[in-house]
């Protein structure tokens, strides 16, 4: 049954790397082309939204949606593609967890607008004019998407069938998924259960071959501050590595390049808060001091201040999917602003 399938790939709030990643499968792309029609892929094919709108529901077999949900357009397209697709894949860290764009949740829409249009060096905007959602131009009414206050993940707005994390997803994972699809299309094989992650179910330590000492650590080093021994566990060397808390499947590419894991694959299934679990782990392995009983909580705070930016360190890719999700403002702070 060599029925051709149709696939769509869309780019929400992201860097575009995911689109490129799809091309990283090299010559296999030809196989994909053989197997599938491209229904919608804005960076590769000239299809308009209205063309998609005109498609019958469920006529697209698979949509790979990358990027977070940052504005009303991202959400609109996500919903449209969901309606038109049989299978919706949350493709890449931004779609799955918010990713790097998700770090915008440390601020809010108002502050972003103000900074971008009023405060940057290149802004000359004496009237502090900000973009309007609707604008009456001589040519008629122009409309811009609404920027959201909070960055969302794809599954915050639509039902997602599969998740393929990674920044961008590793070629091996894309191939693995293509195999699944191919088998499904060509041989009628079953698809994995809904909600599955197209990745390893283990943590990165499972893929990382470095030697561990299982000793507590004394201090933190930034990767550039020491010569990292490529044979030894990053944490043992005092380099913060999110590997123990992070889903495997990437092939430990960063570690193979002698760089620590920053957590783009997100947590494993049993963990709710990626950053919180790594924060606890890291704090736990700081050595107990000889004079521990004489240390005050301020001393401990100083000790832990070696970790400069906990939020950016532990939630670099997962803030919108964390328990707290976004930065908030205490009422006292609001008054002082």
């Amino acid at each position: 049954m060599a029925k051709k399938v149709s696939i769509a790939q869309y780019w929400g709030a992201g860097c575009g790397g995911c689109d490129v990643a799809l091309l990283d499968i090299d010559e296999r792309i030809l196989g994909v082309a053989e197997m599938a029609d491209i229904a919608f892929w804005p960076i590769a094919v000239d299809t308009k939204l209205k063309d998609v709108e005109a498609m019958p529901d469920k006529s697209i077999t698979i949509t790979l949606y990358n990027g977070a949900i940052r504005n009303s357009e991202n959400e609109h397209v996500a919903k449209l593609l969901r309606q038109k697709s049989q299978i919706m894949v949350s493709f890449g860290s931004c779609a799955c967890y918010g990713g790097i764009p998700g770090l915008a949740n440390v601020t809010n829409k108002k502050a972003i607008m103000d900074y971008v249009y009023n405060k940057t060096f290149s802004s000359i905007n004496p009237d502090e004019t900000l973009p309007q959602v609707k604008y009456q131009a001589p040519e008629g009414e122009l409309e811009l998407p609404v920027l959201y206050d909070t960055v969302l993940t794809l599954d915050d707005v639509v039902d997602v069938d599969y998740y393929m994390p990674g920044c961008p997803p590793a070629v091996s994972l894309i191939n693995e998924f293509l195999d699944i699809v191919e088998k499904h299309v060509k041989e009628g094989a079953d698809l994995p259960p809904k909600g599955s992650f197209i990745a390893s179910q283990k943590t990165l330590c499972d893929e990382c071959g470095r030697e561990k000492s299982y000793e507590p650590i004394d201090r933190i080093y930034l990767p550039h501050e020491i010569d990292i021994d490529p044979e030894k566990c990053m944490l043992d060397q005092g380099v913060i590595c999110l590997g123990p808390a992070t889903r495997a499947g990437c092939g430990a590419q960063c570690l193979n390049a002698n760089q620590p894991c920053r957590g783009c694959m997100g947590p494993t299934a049993a963990v709710e808060d990626h950053g919180g679990s790594m924060l606890s782990a890291l704090a736990s392995i700081f050595r107990t001091a000889d004079n521990e009983t004489h240390l005050s909580e301020d001393d401990i705070l100083k000790m832990m201040s070696e970790i400069k930016d906990p939020l950016g360190t532990f939630y670099a890719f997962t803030m919108p999917k964390s328990i707290i999700k976004r930065k908030v403002t205490e009422r006292k702070a609001e008054v002082s602003e």
């Binding site: 919180g276 924060l279 521990e292 909580e297 705070l301 939020l311 532990f314």
Partner: peptide
Amino acid sequence: IGGNYRTRRRIALLKMLLEQYGLD
């Protein structure tokens, strides 16, 4: 023996995190 030493480290770091989240 030393459980509370783990606690104090986690809480210190967690407080730093809360501050970044905007919580007092």
